[in-house]
Amino acid sequence: MPSSHNLNKIKNSISNGFDVISNKSENLIEISKLKYKIHSEENSMDDLYKDMGKELYTIFKNDKHIDDSLIDYCNTLKKIETRIKTLQKELYKIDNKK
C-alpha cells in the first residue's frame, strides 16, 4: 500500500500537470485570438486596397489623368473586363437555348 508521502507526491505531480496544461491552453487561446485579430486587420487592409483600385479604375475609365506607373494595371483591367463581357455573352446565349 502506498504511503501518504507517495500519495502526496502523486497528487502534487497531477496538480502541477493540470496547471501546466491549463497555462498552455490559455496561451493557445490568447495566440488564436491575436492571430484572428491580425487576420481581421489584414482583411480590412485588403478591402481598402480593393476600394482604392476600383476608384482608380473609375478615374481611368472616365479618361481622367492617372499616374503613368498605374496605366499598365488599368489597361490589363480593361482587357479582363472585355473578356468577362465576352464570356457573359456566351453564357447568355447558352442559357437562353435551354
Rank of each mutant, 00 (worst) to 15 (best):
M45D: 05
N8C: 05
K97T: 13
S44K: 11
N62F: 12
K85P: 00
S32G: 02
E42F: 06
S44D: 14
D68R: 00
K35W: 04
L77R: 04
H65A: 11
K64M: 15
N8T: 11
K11F: 10
K79F: 06
Y73M: 13
K64W: 10
L77P: 01
N43M: 07
K93E: 14
K54D: 15
L70N: 01
L56E: 01
N62K: 11
K78C: 09
I21Y: 01
P2L: 15
N43Q: 08
D46N: 04
I38N: 06
I31G: 02
S13N: 05
N62Q: 09
I80K: 07
I29P: 00
S15Y: 04
Y73P: 00
Y49H: 11
T76H: 07
D46C: 06
S3V: 02
K89Y: 15
I66S: 02
S32K: 07
M45Y: 09
I29C: 03
V20S: 00
L48M: 06
Y49W: 12
K98F: 15
L34H: 09
E26F: 06
D51E: 14
S15E: 13
N8S: 11
C74H: 01
T58M: 13
N62R: 15
K50M: 05
D67S: 06
R83A: 09
I10W: 07
F18A: 10
I10N: 11
D51W: 07
H39L: 10
K64R: 10
D46Y: 06
K85W: 12
H39Y: 12
D72Q: 10
L34G: 00
N27C: 02
I71F: 06
E41G: 05
S32E: 07
K54I: 11
Q88K: 13
I29G: 00
D51N: 09
I66K: 03
K50P: 00
Y57L: 09
I31Y: 03
S3E: 12
D47T: 04
D63C: 01
S69M: 09
K35H: 03
R83P: 05
M1Q: 14
I59Q: 02
I10E: 07
L91Q: 14
F18G: 03
L87D: 12
